[in-house]
């Protein structure tokens, strides 16, 4: 299945219809395993049981950034390679990215309240993730303003590429500025700094979240392709070329 074959929406739809049930089953199984691991994990010696919030805060943050990264690739697909499904993929991913970034911000604030004493502080990491969230909303607004999907896709692709500059800032914000936020403890030069008993459930939760994201994204892309077909049919009908 060459990459270009995926360019054909009909073939892509057939692929999604075949793969989605399996993916959903896999996601449900992954969540069952990960949640069981998360609640079995020991408490942190400092943070006590609130460390359990990490099992959703970290995957949500990872998905927020992963989704923007994936949208950046789709943006290149739209602008450079003219891949017909690239802007479909980008448009389908935006609400998911916004939702997971929102979850990341909210769970972070709920974790911050007991641990730092305040829901929000203007800290480098939190602020850059908030900027990303505002950009996600900007993209949603852009998609909801421009009527023609092709033109909207091009504009959104450019905005996504510009926004991608924010990703390294988020990743390294904890190292560049002295922040209240925890420095990187998983993706590190000398390996994760978390004890396996908590690391394993964390990785399992992240995998489960990612599977959920992929399943939702494929389904959202399928919807988007159908929505464009409806729009094309309505345009045809309006022209009266084929109307009954």
């Amino acid at each position: 299945m060459a990459w270009i074959d995926l360019a054909n929406p009909t073939r892509f739809l057939r692929l999604v219809d075949r793969a989605l049930p399996w993916l959903t089953a896999l996601t449900v199984f992954a969540f069952a395993y990960a949640l069981n691991g998360a609640f079995g994990a020991p408490d942190d010696y400092q943070q006590g049981a609130t460390v359990k919030i990490m099992f959703i805060h970290v995957p949500a943050a990872w998905l927020g950034m992963f989704c923007w990264g994936m949208m950046t690739i789709s943006a290149l697909g739209t602008l450079v390679f003219r891949h017909p499904l690239a802007d479909v993929a980008a448009k389908a991913a935006v609400p998911l990215g916004a939702a997971f970034t929102f979850v990341c911000l909210v769970t972070g604030a709920l974790w911050g309240r007991p641990m730092w004493g305040t829901y929000w502080v203007w800290d480098a990491r939190l602020t850059s993730v908030l900027v990303m969230f505002v950009m996600y909303l900007g993209l949603i607004a852009l998609w909801r303003t421009v009527e023609d999907p092709t033109r909207a896709g091009r504009a959104a692709a450019i905005l996504t590429l510009v926004g991608a500059l924010n990703l390294p800032i988020i990743k390294f914000s904890v190292d560049w500025w002295n922040t209240l936020h925890q420095p990187a403890s998983v993706v590190r030069v000398d390996g994760p700094a978390i004890h396996p008993s908590i690391l394993i459930p964390l990785l399992a939760m992240t995998l489960a979240f990612t599977l959920l994201f992929v399943a939702l994204h494929l389904a959202a892309m399928r919807n988007e392709i159908l929505r464009r077909r409806v729009r094309t049919l309505r345009l045809l009908q309006a022209q009266g070329a084929r109307g009954a």
């Binding site: 305040t118 502080v121 203007w122 602020t127 505002v134 909303l137 607004a141 909801r144 303003t145 009527e147």
Partner: peptide, 28 residues
């Protein structure tokens, strides 16, 4: 509907309020 201005006000509101602490500083 798409193209309507419903959510533009909220987005502008969110952006303006988020900008203020950048200018004023993080002093809670």
């Amino acid at each position: 509907r798409i193209g309507g201005g419903a959510m533009m006000g909220v987005l502008f509101f969110l952006t303006v309020v988020t900008l203020m602490p950048f200018a004023i500083g993080p002093d809670l």
